[in-house]
Structures are given as structure tokens and as C-alpha cells.
Amino acid sequence: MQKLGDFRVPNFFNYPPYFTLQPIRETREKQVQLWKELILDYCRSQKVFIIGLEEEFPLFSNPAIQRSLSHESREVFLSALVSEGRAEWIDKNHRKCLVLWLRIQDWADHLINFVRENGLEDSVMTVEDIRSGIESRGTELAGIDRGVLIRALKLLEQKGKAAIFKGSSTDDEGVKFNV
């Protein structure tokens, strides 16, 4: 079984026609489905948040069978994720894509669990603490994309479960949880 780092790739990754967009609808649907799952699984295991369509990305080519995805197929697969709310285009030209292997709502739930487990209710943390502090080490939150984290925090703020304080620089935005 071929591996990308510590990620086990599924069988279809070694089957050349999956790298060409299929013209027949049913076959195409199956193909898109497999790729969507692969992209989400890979991004989750490798903590990848942003995929650049014009950059090297391990999933976009398989040297073992000498195949790589065309720009069009990259866009088709990611657009399929976007239409399901599992990804967002960052720019209008569809050059960069934010992959939400957890939806913002799921991230917010993760945050609440994290706060409860670490007894951080009613205490103040900086955004940077959440991303790279000792408490978050080994959890899904470690290394979370800053933009995604802020959006999850804002969602909590709307629900009255957190309050975000502006600091003097972007590094030290503070959060007070009120779970």
C-alpha cells in the first residue's frame, strides 16, 4: 500500500482513469465522491486548511502511476466540496480553497469541549494560546487555521458563550469563555 507521509491512500488513487474527468455522468459522480472523501480525509489527517490549485499538493499527482490532475479536475473536485459547505473559495479566481473538514459549527463544539475539559470556563485565553498552547496539544485544535478559529469563536460569541477582546496587535486577541 502506497503512503503519503503517514497517510494511507485509497486504492483508486493508483488507478489511472481516476485522474481524468469522466464524461459519463454516473461514473463521474462516483469519481467526484471518491475524490471528495480523499481530500477531506487527507486534509484532516495532515491538518491542511488551504489548498492552492496552482501549487504542488501531494494528492494532485501520483508519481507511481505518472498521472496528475488537470487544473479543471482540481477545480471540479473542490467545487463539489464547496457546494456541500465543506470548502470555500478564498478568491474569486478559484486559485485558493479553504477546506473545512470540520464545519465551523463543529469547530465551535470542539472549542466548548476543549474549554470544559481543561477547566477554562470563565478564564481568558489568547487566540494564539488556543492554536499552539499546551492545552491544545494533541487535540484537533492544535494548529487550527487562524481564520477558521476566529469564525468559530465569533459563532460562540453570537451565542453568548464567548467574548472576544481586541488587543493592541493581532497576536494577542483575547477570548473569555462563558460556557
Partner: peptide
């Protein structure tokens, strides 16, 4: 068309 074949233009 019958879904028995898949095309591969990548070679």
C-alpha cells in the same frame, strides 16, 4: 456509456 469503461487521458 454502459459504465464498463473509464477513460484515461493522462499518459
Amino acid at each position: 456509456k454502459e459504465g464498463l469503461a473509464m477513460i484515461d487521458d493522462g499518459h
